[in-house]
Amino acid sequence: MLLSTLSEMKCKQNVLKSTDGSVEFSQGDTVVLVGAYGPADCKESKQDVKEAIVEVNFRPKIGIPGIAEKYLEQFVKGVCESCIQRSLHPRTTFSIIVQVIQDRGSLLSCAINGTSMALQDAGISMKFMPVAVTVALKHKEEVSMETDCGTEDYDVIFSPSLEEEEKAFANLTLVFDSVKSELVSTYASGPMTSFQYQQCLMSAKNVSKSIVQFFRDSVSKKLAADVL
């Protein structure tokens, strides 16, 4: 059995007065600010009579949003569309804005976890809460003799830093649902064997449970004083 560490998480809810729900979520040194509006009014030309539409806006710190941000936007949008009960609010919009405050690696998983908390903070009806884990696979720099599995020449790193992400031969962001820990979405880059993928999937699944517990703690901490 190998061990790796998950970076420390911090979550500050209801930080912005202007939004319906907002969260400052940090995973290690990566910090994002996520705001959510909804169900809000929608232009008639864009309305969908059957269900609400979801808009995601991913804002980088430097420069205007480019293709990379658009791609992440689409990914987060897909995750949100699957978790929000959109049919409850037809002809409305859910607007989610992700502002990067500090990027030190595993940005996507931080953004998704932040979005998940922001939706919860806004009191939006959801089927489940998405939970994301970023995993990097890196070749071992020097082969140590003490490892149990001598055949493995790579490390599995959870919540990698920017440097680790760069050095890794494959990066993987897995999104699970909070109820049954089933895979919702995957974002992968770099080549990996199916064994490695399975290994990451299984371990990330276990990790996602501890993140759900963190979500639960955060919510109960917020509501503790709220209850009469």
């Binding site: 729900g21 809460m129 917020k222 509501l223």
Partner: peptide, 27 residues
């Protein structure tokens, strides 16, 4: 019976259940 909002479960006699949660947007 599934929960769709994060919050605490409340019970009103004789048989009503609901979730009390933080929300700003009115529905």
């Amino acid at each position: 019976v599934t929960v769709s909002k994060a919050g605490s479960l409340c019970f009103g006699p004789p048989n009503t259940f609901w979730i009390d949660c933080h929300q700003k947007r009115y529905i």
